[in-house]
Design a protein around this nucleic acid. Structure first.
Lengths: 356, 356
DNA sequence: TTTGACATAGAAAACGTTTTCTGCTATTGT
DNA sequence: ACAATAGCAGAAAACGTTTTCTATGTCAAA
């Protein structure tokens, strides 16, 4: 590995000058010497020692990314979005998985600071950042898809209220008047937001919000199944069920099938997330997808702006999602599972789509 | 951030001595001064500047992890396994997603070297490491779950031959005599290995290997569906189908249902991978799971051994998986989808299981 | 002319470590 | 009792950068 010093000798110049051109300083250097240095650097295959640079400038070009759960469906897509802009701007990320249960005990963040990261991204974490980590006052941070309730001025989150209305409005357009709702776990921020969307959609067209039609699940298939059984037992059975995620929607489908009800003819069902299960279940599930890749990109841009001291409007950013109409609400085209392949996330550039 | 110098002043000692105790050098230091230094360091909240350390020692405690596809089902679990041992040994990983299509053009690896990473892990990559990256001769590396055919002495891969026999032996025990096989894409290493396992199991019990019963898919649900249609059209219909992954097994289930066949009564079906789809499909799919978390751990240990110059037997390490018996091969207990929650990977410690 | 101002380049300090070298004291072996 | 050694601590160099300070020559304005 060639150093700046070797280049200086080879070019017959001082290391100061070499540094100035190789670090893109805006200190004036004649075109002549600049060209000579670049040429020599090229020939010697120079690549800067980032440890030395970091030591001198106290900037590492390293971003700490902290996850609650690496294996969630969303996290990898968000991270790809983050890295898409970070890499293009010369930054690297150090992604660490810290389950919220061991959050406070963990010294990982401390170690990240030892690497003098330039900032943090919290992805799908549980607690307000400052709560466990007072030390973060030193470094800029952003949060993506936060799970907690307290607002955070530097977060990029899906517009769950709006997204939820997409599925409910869709059902209303299909002339459903009585729509049951299976909410998610109440300790989740998203859960309450989606419920709000459900209520808004009904209110918008003058439909009553009946408490008897609102059920509480815990995101699991099982809870979707069990709540649906209760829904089917209602005296005046609703014609549609909206669930706060695709897992519960799938549970509803299983329950309907076990109860001898046809989906969507007897009961229409919609979900949320566009998880794999929504794309492969039988019938496929009408759902809404958060633009995770884009959210990652925006978060990274916000963070870099903060790091470089640019103006950043400190406010939550709500990102809208897209509706996917499939069989479970009555679109026969959803049958394409057997005929076509599917991809996971329409926000992924073609070059990065999964091959398998 | 306190430095070694400040601690030296506060303790009335030289920075050399402070460094020796704080870096766990084995240079002799009296218990007295060692205790004093540790106390002061504790009080001042010392955390070493890793850039400086890295500059001086040319070791960064950083590991580059290179992925072909972040969003695969397997990658996150492997990475968690990697990080489980890396973090406990004071290392951090820089995970980068480089699709094989842009592999050679990418300067990401070059940049990683600029960060003077101590080693590389290649996860699910496509090409033999050296092929595109001659520079790797400088740094130790290991590969996990490699997708290419050429053997690699430093790889940790699933024992696909053995794992495949688990599902076939299972079918044979259930008295199936004619078992069709849907193989994966032939350019994948795993694909051919799993096919070999199928043939071995048949040969072991003296069953003939009929070329007419071996079909070629491309991992997709669609290809499982279409190949199964051909299987059902055979004059002497097999009583079981084994697929090289769960997606194709699911395609087989859909095809069976569309053909009016009952699974498993008329046709038994087994898959491979224990993907989410195997756990939630109706019927649930008998399959085999690779111990991804463990593979990640072993790979990390191998790498650290190489880095620290310890003896490492340079040979592929084949890791055995576990059979999961479910409904699609005839186990009624698989019905538990409606009654119980499921988790993705039994190798994940409880504290890290997905919450959602 | 003279005076700045500017463009350009080098010398040297600094960032926070680790480690070699040097030196002192106390202990051991003869 | 004396040399050799071991234990311990400090001074200083080094790692590869960036950046301040200094120095030169050139050019435009007065």
């Amino acid at each position: 590995m060639a150093t700046i010093k070797e280049i200086a000798e080879a070019a017959g110049l001082s290391i100061a000058t070499v540094s100035r051109v190789l670090s893109n300083s805006n200190y004036p250097v004649s075109d002549d010497t600049r060209a000579r240095i670049l040429k020599v650097a090229q020939e010697l295959g120079y690549s800067p020692n980032l440890a030395a640079r970091s030591l001198r400038t106290d900037q590492s070009s390293l971003i700490g990314v902290i996850l609650d759960n690496f294996s969630s469906t969303w996290a990898p897509i968000i991270i790809r979005g983050l890295q898409d802009v970070l890499h293009s701007r010369g930054y690297f990320s150090m992604v660490v998985n810290i389950p919220w249960q061991i959050y406070s005990q963990s010294d990982v963040v401390q170690n990240l600071l030892g690497h003098s990261v330039d900032g943090f991204v919290f992805v799908e974490t549980w607690h307000p950042v400052g709560e466990h980590l007072g030390l973060l006052n030193e470094k800029p941070y952003v949060t993506v898809h936060r799970l907690f309730h307290e607002p955070d001025p530097f977060s990029v989150i899906p517009d769950d209220v709006y997204n939820s209305t997409l599925t409910i409005d869709h059902l209303i357009q299909l002339d459903h008047q009585r729509i049951a709702y299976i909410a998610g776990h109440e300790e989740y921020f998203s859960s309450e937001e989606r419920l709000t969307g459900y209520k808004q959609s009904l209110a918008n067209v003058g439909l009553p919000v009946e408490q008897d039609l609102i059920f509480r699940g815990d995101w699991s298939i099982t809870s979707g199944y069990q709540n649906s059984q209760r829904i089917f037992a209602l005296a005046n059975r609703p014609t549609a069920i909206a669930a706060a995620n695709d897992q519960m929607a799938y549970g509803a489908i299983l329950a309907a099938q076990d109860a001898g009800l046809r989906v969507p003819e007897d009961i229409a069902i919609v979900g949320y997330d566009n998880d794999e299960i929504a794309q492969v279940s039988n019938p496929t599930i009408t759902t809404v997808q958060m633009p995770l890749f884009k959210m990652g990109r925006i978060a990274a841009e916000n963070l870099l702006n903060r790091i470089h001291g640019k103006e950043h409007v400190a406010t939550e950013q709500l990102i809208k999602g897209d509706l996917f109409i499939r069989q479970s609400s009555g679109d026969p085209a959803g049958a394409d599972i057997r005929a076509h392949d599917y991809t996971r996330d329409s926000n992924i550039p073609d070059s990065q789509r999964t091959r398998r």
